[in-house]
Design a protein around this nucleic acid. Structure first.
Length: 440
RNA sequence: GGACGGGUGGCCGAGCGGUUAAUGGCAGCAGACUGUAAAUCUGCCGACGAGAGUCUACGGAGGUUCGAAUCCUCCCCCUUCCA
C-alpha cells in the first residue's frame, strides 16, 4: 500500500457517500449563485475575470509525515528554516506543511541527510516539500517576479548568474560564489538527500518578458527535463532500502501565457505518472492574465491528482485559485512582508492592500493588537504600538512576532476556506477575509 | 595668555569662488514585495505654493568679487597643544 494518497472529501452540505467526487464537481445552486455574486463584486474592483464555475474542492493529501487537509498553504522554508520564525511557532500557529529549496540546500544536502532529513533536522517533523531549483533558473537570471514583470530588475548591471544547456543549468551560488550545476538527475538526488515527502520535477520557470519562441523552446526542454526527473526518480525509488522513506513527485505545467502551449504542457503532465501536478512559469503581467492562465490550465489538467499553484499567495489570489480547484499554494509573501513590517489583516488594509504596515506613524502608541479576534500568540500578547516601537528601534523581535501572526493568518484563512467549501459558504468567507478594499 | 584645527539643513558629516537648496549616512514620511541573492528595495525629506515659482539658509557682523558655505577682517563659541 502506498504511503501517499490524495482523496477528495465531499462537502457536508451535499453528502453523497457513494460518489464524493461527483458532488464536488456539482455544487449546489445556492453555492453557485453566491459565488457569482462574489465574483461581480471582485470584478468591479480589479477587473479580474471571475471563475466562470466553481471547482473548489476539499481534499486529504497523505504523506509518510502526516496528512495535509486541502486547500492548504505551504510556507517557504527555503534554506530549511522559515525566516523569522521558530518551528515551535510554525507548529503552534497551525501550519500543515513547509517547503525547502534544492538550489539553496544543495551545498548542505549531505548534512541535511545526516541530520535525518528536512523534517527531522528542522524539528518540524511534519509533511515537507522541496522545489527543484527550477525557479532559480529564472530568478538568478532575471530577479524576482515583480521586478521581471514591472521591468525594474533589482540588479540591472549584474550578469546573469545562470547558464542553461540541454543537460541542465549552471549557477553561481548566491552564498559563496561556487559554481553549482543542477540537472534533472542532480535535482532528484539532492531532493532525495533532503528527504522531503513531496518533490518537484526539475523545470525552467520562464520569465514574462521573453518571446513566444523562447517560452515554447523552454517548455519543451522542461518537458524533457521533467521526463528525465521522473525516470531518475523512479530508478532511485526502486533502489531505496532500509528505513529510507518513499517520496512522491509533482510534474510542472509551463507554457507561459500562451494558451496552446499551456494546453500542450497540461497534456504532457497528465500523461506522465506524476503523483501531483503544479502550475508554474510566468502567469502573466496582471491578475486578470494570471486568472486566465490558471483557469485555462485547470481546464486541461486531470482532476484526480493534487494540484499545486507555485508561488502564489495573496489572499485574493488564493480565493481565486481555490475556486478554480487549486489544492495547495506556496508563497514567500506572508513571511516576507512580515519582515518588512506588514501584518496581514482580515478585510484588508488601506486601499487595495491586504495588510497594514506597522511601521507607519498611524500605529505609534496604538494599544490594540493587530487583530483582536486573531488567536495567534502575537495578537494575544502584543499591541500594534509595541510592534511599531520594535520596528522603529530595529529589534528582531518585531519581525518574529509579525511573522508569527502572518503564519497564523494564512493557516486560519485556509481553515476558513475549507470550512467555507464544506458548508457551502465560500462566498461569504471570501467577503469576510477580503473586505471591500482588497479586490479579487 | 599664545598656537593649531573647527563651527554646514532634526543629528552626524562632505563641499573649500559660479553647474549648491547644498554629496553621503542616520532619523522622519510613504510605497513596493506572489515556486526568497530580500530583517530588502524605491521615492520624498528648508519654508510657502496645486504648479510654475518665491523666499530664507552654511556661528555673528562687516568686506573683496559680476558672483561667497567657500577668500579677507573683527567678534562669539568648541577641540587639541604650548605656557
Amino acid at each position: 500500500m502506498s504511503s501517499f494518497s490524495f482523496e477528495l472529501i465531499p462537502p457536508q452540505s451535499q453528502v453523497c457517500p457513494s460518489n464524493p467526487s461527483q458532488d464536488i464537481r456539482n455544487p449546489s445552486q445556492d453555492y453557485d449563485r453566491e459565488l457569482q455574486d462574489s465574483c461581480h463584486k471582485s470584478q468591479a474592483v480589479s477587473h479580474s475575470p471571475c471563475p466562470s464555475s466553481n471547482a473548489a474542492r476539499l481534499g486529504r493529501l497523505s504523506t509518510p509525515h502526516g496528512a495535509i487537509l486541502t486547500p492548504a498553504f505551504v510556507f517557504c522554508a527555503t534554506k530549511g528554516a522559515i525566516k523569522g520564525a521558530t518551528m515551535e511557532d510554525v507548529c503552534l500557529e497551525q501550519t500543515q506543511v513547509i517547503l525547502a529549496n534544492t538550489y539553496h540546500l544543495m551545498p548542505s544536502a549531505a548534512i541535511v541527510r545526516k541530520l535525518g532529513g528536512l523534517a527531522k533536522m528542522s524539528g518540524w517533523n511534519g509533511p515537507t516539500l522541496t522545489d527543484s531549483g527550477g525557479y532559480q533558473v529564472f530568478s538568478m537570471g532575471h530577479g524576482s517576479v515583480a521586478e521581471e514583470i514591472k521591468g525594474n530588475r533589482r540588479f540591472p548591471q549584474a550578469k546573469s548568474m545562470v547558464r542553461i544547456s540541454e543537460d541542465g543549468a549552471t549557477f553561481k551560488s548566491c552564498i559563496n560564489g561556487d559554481t553549482l550545476f543542477l540537472s534533472p538527475e542532480v535535482s532528484v538526488e539532492i531532493q532525495e538527500q533532503i528527504g522531503a515527502d513531496l518533490i518537484f520535477a526539475f523545470d525552467e520557470c520562464t520569465p514574462y518578458h521573453v518571446s513566444r519562441e523562447y517560452t515554447d523552446a523552454a517548455m519543451r526542454r522542461s518537458h524533457r527535463w521533467e521526463k528525465r526527473s521522473l525516470e531518475h526518480f523512479a530508478m532511485r525509488e526502486a533502489q531505496k532500502q532500509g528505513d529510507a522513506l518513499p517520496q512522491a513527485m509533482y510534474g510542472i505545467v509551463q507554457g507561459g501565457v500562451y494558451e496552446d502551449l499551456r494546453r500542450e504542457s497540461c497534456a504532457f503532465v497528465n500523461g506522465e505518472p506524476f503523483f501531483g501536478q503544479a502550475i508554474g512559469g510566468s502567469l502573466g503581467a496582471s491578475k486578470a492574465q494570471m486568472q486566465d492562465v490558471i483557469s485555462l490550465s485547470m481546464q486541461h489538467l486531470r482532476k484526480d491528482r493534487p494540484v499545486h499553484l507555485l508561488g502564489i499567495g495573496h489572499v485574493a489570489d488564493i480565493f481565486d485559485g481555490v475556486m478554480l480547484g487549486i489544492d495547495t499554494f506556496d508563497c514567500v509573501h506572508p513571511t516576507r512582508i512580515a519582515r518588512h513590517g506588514g501584518a496581514l489583516v482580515k478585510g484588508g488594509g488601506r486601499g487595495n492592500s491586504e495588510h497594514i504596515n506597522l511601521r507607519n506613524s498611524a500605529y505609534v502608541g496604538d494599544a490594540s493588537p493587530i487583530d483582536p479576534h486573531c488567536p495567534c500568540q502575537t495578537c494575544r500578547m502584543y499591541s500594534r504600538g509595541y510592534l511599531n516601537h520594535l520596528l522603529r528601534i530595529q529589534e528582531m523581535a518585531a519581525l518574529i512576532l509579525i511573522s508569527r501572526h502572518n503564519i497564523r493568518f494564512m493557516n486560519d484563512l485556509m481553515a476558513a476556506i475549507r470550512e467555507g467549501i464544506a458548508s457551502g459558504t465560500l462566498a461569504q468567507v471570501r467577503r469576510e477575509w477580503l473586505g471591500a478594499g482588497a479586490g479579487g
